[in-house]
């Protein structure tokens, strides 16, 4: 089955992961800009990082037949240096012009501080002005419900198109307000700290599949890119057809990411020999 991994931190992973993903059906990944594990000090460090994910990483993925796309952002964990954020944001338009950059992300909130909120507003505003898609990170664990509410408040005060905004890392306590407000919602599968494959399928059964993106992130911490395949298996073992699984794990990413014409992978439909029309 063909799968798209819409949130994947490839630079933290090995070529072996690409190889195994390719062998298990992954045809494309999209890499949001991420926190490096420490706070970067210089705009140039971000610029080189953006070059890495927009220029070099696609070549690494291509060796395994996987398309690689990316997003640019200053991570919310690094928003406490507003001067640095402003300096990095000035360079975004040059990256928007690159052939595999899909938009701004992952921006969002971590502790929901004043500086984080200002950074989020600046990121979203810039994205909207340049017609870019937006990927928004919501906080982990104890901060999630509060941070998600704050994200929705910030967006409600801005002139945005909800269809072009993906709010990620939703869980049972945050999915409904995100979908009700018209945004895309992302389930991020992690071994223990975020959503699990079984709980993701529970939410698919409860809320349906419209405007849902499932990903397994995978970064330099405890994470596993193949939780996405585990989620596909869980979805199928609950009686869902191959086409229904394709709708969630391939076609939904096409629908959201394809709003940027650079993402040219189209939704697919399974046909048998007797249903193919000439």
């Amino acid at each position: 089955m063909q799968i798209i991994q819409p949130h994947y931190h490839a630079i933290a992973r090995t070529a072996q992961d690409y190889e195994r993903m390719a062998m298990s059906g992954v045809v494309a990944v999209a890499e949001p800009a991420f926190w490096a594990g420490f706070d970067r000090l210089y705009p140039e460090t971000f610029i080189d990082y953006f070059r890495q994910i927009s220029e070099f990483e696609p070549t690494r993925a291509a060796q395994y037949g996987i398309r690689h796309f990316c997003w640019v952002a200053v991570n919310p964990k690094e928003a406490e240096n507003p001067g640095l954020t402003r300096a990095v944001l000035e360079h975004f338009p040059e990256f928007f012009a690159k052939p595999t950059v899909l938009g701004v992300g992952e921006t969002g909130l971590h502790k929901s501080t004043k500086n984080e909120i200002e950074s989020l507003e600046a990121h979203v505003d810039l994205a909207m002005k340049h017609g870019q898609l937006v990927l928004i990170h919501t906080p982990h664990l104890a901060d999630k419900a509060h941070g998600t509410r704050k994200v929705l408040e910030v967006l409600a005060g801005m002139n945005v198109d909800p269809e072009r905004i993906w709010i990620d890392h939703v869980e049972e306590q945050t999915i409904k307000p995100v979908l009700d407000a018209g945004y895309w919602a992302g389930f991020t599968l992690y071994p223990i700290t975020k959503c699990s494959p079984k709980r993701a399928v529970d939410m698919l059964e409860k809320y349906g599949t419209e405007r849902i993106l499932v990903n397994s992130s995978a970064d330099w911490g405890p994470s596993d890119p193949f939780l996405l395949q585990e989620c596909v298996l869980e979805y199928r073992r609950r009686g869902r057809s191959l086409q229904e699984a394709i709708e969630v794990f391939h076609n939904n990413p096409c629908r959201f990411l394809g709003q940027n014409p650079k993402f040219d992978i189209k939704p697919i439909r399974v046909e048998t020999a007797d249903t193919v029309t000439a």
Binding site: P191, I192, T193, S196, K198, R199, D202, E205, K206
Partner: peptide, 20 residues
Amino acid sequence: FLESRHQILEIAALMDRYDA
């Protein structure tokens, strides 16, 4: 703690899944 949190959430999800 986090591992146990995860395991308890999985059990709660099973109970919710059964009710649904």
